[in-house]
Design a protein around this nucleic acid. Structure first.
Lengths: 87, 87
DNA sequence: GAAGTATTTAGACAAATGTCTAAATATGTG
DNA sequence: CACATATTTAGACATTTGTCTAAATACTTC
């Protein structure tokens, strides 16, 4: 839970997740969308990976990043405890 | 969105929210549940308030904190964009 | 209004975070 | 194998964050 909220607590990382919603992307494609350096983006990707919010697949020379929506459901479940009056 | 995720990115603050799920509490009652100093708890409450995750009601000498679940729904909505294949 | 309780504000400090540049590690190609 | 491309790792540095103690503010009661 900690890693999850930590990973979500950054605009760049949230933007990455929104990009991956539409299609899988390589680290390079992702980095190209931002004005920060590649190593910084790589670091963000690492945190997302630690939180298991993204999964990586090696595709030859490239590394493709994919959303892992399973983990999203975990946060949603945590949040829903507040919406329902009595569980 | 930024303030929201920032507010959620701390175990103490998440614990406070879970406590408030059951019943409204005064700042003092909340602070008593933790081993950290009252000013620290007050600071956490302030961040929760900034994120509008909690609302305050002055009850005489005390300040009562209440959950604001409306805001939770906002995060859930953001998260749900990833769960549904095509919006 | 003086004194007591509840809570926040101020200011300091160590630890965590996001960024950078430079270098290292794959992987693919001639 | 040598070289080029893709990505990560290392190390440094400024900013942000969570914590503390001390002091200030707000409300209640005598």
């Amino acid at each position: 839970m900690n890693l999850l909220f930590k990973a979500l607590n950054d605009p760049t990382r949230r933007a990455i997740l929104e990009m991956l919603k539409d299609k899988d992307m390589t680290a390079g494609e992702i980095a190209a969308q931002f004005d920060i350096s590649w190593p910084s983006v790589s670091h963000h990707l690492d945190l997302l990976k630690q939180a298991k919010l993204v999964l990586t697949v090696k595709e030859g020379q490239f590394i493709s990043y994919t959303l892992n929506t399973t983990v999203m459901d975990e946060i949603i479940k945590w949040l829903l405890q507040f919406s329902t009056p009595k569980n």
